[in-house]
Simulated scan of single mutants.
Amino acid sequence: MPVTDLAASASANRTDDEVWTPKVCAEFLHVHLATLARWRSECRGPRYLKIGPKSVRYRPEDVREWLADNVTDPKSLR
């Protein structure tokens, strides 16, 4: 399944307990996997879950909340 289909299916068919892999999250946000990894190391970006020592997952509602919290109104920057 192409990556774009993964994000679309993750958005359309999600349940309350669904989590996204970093690959699906990166596709949803239109950023590289390395960008998500860097954000995690810099304590930036959307909240994520650590499952074991190496597995990372993102809850779709956390990603959407992070996006909403980062909306900038250009008029407010003047």
Rank of each mutant, 00 (worst) to 15 (best):
M1L: 09
M1Q: 12
P2K: 06
P2T: 06
V3I: 11
T4D: 15
D5M: 07
A7W: 01
A7T: 03
A7Y: 11
S9Y: 10
A10M: 02
S11H: 12
A12R: 14
A12K: 12
T15C: 14
D16P: 07
D16V: 13
D17G: 09
W20E: 03
W20T: 07
W20P: 05
T21M: 08
T21K: 12
P22V: 00
K23T: 03
K23G: 01
K23S: 13
V24Q: 09
C25P: 09
E27I: 00
F28Q: 05
L29D: 01
H30Q: 15
H30T: 07
V31M: 04
H32K: 13
L36D: 08
L36I: 04
A37F: 00
W39L: 14
R40E: 06
C43D: 13
R47M: 07
R47T: 03
R47P: 13
K50S: 11
K50I: 01
K50R: 15
K50C: 05
K50G: 03
P53L: 03
K54Y: 11
K54E: 14
V56S: 05
V56P: 00
V56N: 07
V56F: 06
R59I: 00
P60K: 00
E61F: 11
E61R: 13
E61I: 09
D62F: 04
V63F: 04
E65A: 04
E65H: 01
W66D: 05
L67T: 08
L67D: 06
D69I: 02
N70H: 13
N70A: 05
N70F: 01
V71S: 01
V71A: 02
V71Y: 04
V71Q: 11
P74G: 01
P74M: 08
K75V: 12
S76H: 14
S76K: 12
S76I: 04
L77H: 08
L77D: 14
R78M: 03
